[in-house]
Amino acid sequence: MQTTAETTQEHGAIAVEQAHGHGDHPDHRLFGMGVFLFAEAMIFLGLFAAYLTFRSVAEVWPPAGTPERELLLPGINTIILISSSFVMNRGNQAIKQDDVKGMQFWFGLTAALGAIFLAGQGYEYYTNTFGLTDNLFTSTFYVLTGFHGLHVMFGLSLILLVLLRSRTPGHYSSTSHFGIEASELYWHFVDVVWIVLFLILYIL
């Protein structure tokens, strides 16, 4: 019994408590968020697998008559989204130094980059010469990018919520900033999903 009790300490509540310093109320929210994002990742994996299966069993891919995809705008969009993740991390670094102003600056910049990404995607949809129901490729294209776009929108709302809350003095500090860490984790997740999406939809 002693040996098993010792091994628990590694993954038990105690470790979390020490890491976060929340007194006798260990905070499991970030862990729970990670578990939830795992489930989210499985939806995307399922959709990616469906797309790759369609692709692999088709004789010609994309199906005949699909217009050539433009790469420049989505490429720029990809760079914008990836860099926003690094920008956002500076915000997290700032709050760890109790620098609320700095956090607000970096998070504001992230929100702007996210909005540019969404606007770029909207512009791409608008200028595309193919529609949702044209063929199997165009359908998967719109459903996958659209589903991802919804997640970007949700991530953007999380960032704006953090910015709104940070106007209350003392809401976030170097010891208590779950909202900042959670929204950053979510944003990185959305970012990674986009990289895979970009690779299989545009490059492959």
Partner: peptide, 20 residues
Amino acid sequence: GVNFVTTILKMRIKEMGLYD
């Protein structure tokens, strides 16, 4: 599922290891 995983892994009393 999110709740059960987190509760089982993180909320046990201190003396209770996984194998207890």
